[in-house]
């Protein structure tokens, strides 16, 4: 109810921040599918997210078409990139998976930075992706709220489906799942591709939100930010991504207006969370509630 009433209660600046929180929560949830439910921590989802943004805006500025076609093409491009990443990465695990996804993300960043004729290089791409009826902050916020509600429900069903339970089994013991006859590489490939699909959805919505994309959108910092949002909220707790995204984006926007050293405040927050609540904010709350029940 509070989320629905927000545009009527708060100025447009706060509505814009809330919209950003919802978009990056989807990115964080997509990372949580791999990190929390499959046991593979990726550092390349910023590149997948940014690919959707780049393709959506490029399609809008160069090829025209309806806003929904642009978004679908952007999501398809991101899913394709995720599938390519998955084919290369499924044989690795742990720190090697992290490094490989980092390297693949850096390749995408390098291409976006250097291919100036298509991506605009450091200048980026600017394009009006939003249709006229979504021009106001409130109308766009409601669209994003509705879309994110549907996406969250689909993701929740996905991780609680038999396929999702198989992923948890793979996270617990890959060799056990292999000996039980499960096709572990195929499950990992599909999990990565589905995760990339949702990251692409977030990227396409971000293209509508920002109407501008630059290499920083596909950079390592974007991947790290998404991962930190998932960790802060609680890895393995899908809804923790909302808490993590809200915490980090609020800190970025509000603390920076009071001090130049807002990055130090952000870093201190992460240190405190890792020391006192390593399972994340939502994970910690769940632990406390379980202890009281039990």
């Amino acid at each position: 109810m509070g989320l629905a009433a927000m545009p009527y209660l708060l100025p447009n600046y706060y509505v814009s921040i809330a919209t950003q929180v919802l978009i990056f929560a989807v990115l964080a949830m997509s990372i949580d599918i791999l990190a929390g439910y499959t046991g593979r921590t990726p550092l390349g989802h910023g590149a997948i997210f940014g690919t959707a943004t780049y393709v959506t805006i490029y399609w809008a500025t160069t090829l025209g078409g309806s806003p929904w076609t642009r978004m679908l093409v952007g999501i398809a491009a991101a899913t394709t990139v995720a599938a390519i990443f998955a084919l290369l990465a499924i044989r690795t695990s742990g720190v090697y998976f992290l490094l490989l996804t980092l390297a693949l993300g850096m390749i995408v960043w390098g291409v976006c930075l250097r291919w100036t004729s298509v991506t605009g290089g450091e200048n980026g791409l600017r394009g009006a992706v939003r249709p006229a009826f979504l021009a106001t902050h409130a109308s766009f916020y409601y669209l994003v709220l509705g879309a994110v509600a549907v996406i969250t429900f689909v993701m929740w069903r996905f991780v609680n489906s038999p396929f999702g339970l198989t992923l948890r089994g793979i996270k617990d013991s890959e060799s056990r799942m292999r000996s039980l006859g499960y096709n572990v590489p195929l499950h990992l490939f599909l999990a990565f591709t589905v995760s990339g699909f949702f990251a692409g959805v977030a990227g396409a919505i971000y293209a509508m939100f920002n109407s501008f994309v630059s290499p920083s959108t596909v950079a390592l910092t974007q991947s790290v930010a998404g991962l930190l949002m998932a960790i802060t909220g609680g890895i393995g707790t899908l809804f923790g991504s909302f808490v993590g995204a809200a915490a980090i984006i609020s800190l970025e926007n509000f603390v920076s207006s009071y001090t130049e050293r807002w990055l130090s405040v952000l870093g201190l927050m992460f240190v405190l969370i890792m020391v006192f609540a390593p399972e994340g904010i939502v994970g910690r709350i769940r632990m406390i509630l379980d202890r009281r029940r039990g």
Partner: peptide, 30 residues
């Protein structure tokens, strides 16, 4: 020669090595 490929040249080999030798170039399973 091709500045467009600069980051590909740096991170491409790293990605290929890890893709075909998941435990690193000289890595061995424990």
């Amino acid at each position: 020669m091709f500045p467009e490929l600069a980051y590909f040249v740096i991170f491409g080999p790293m990605a290929l090595i890890l893709a075909f030798r998941p435990l690193g170039l000289f890595g061995r399973a424990a």
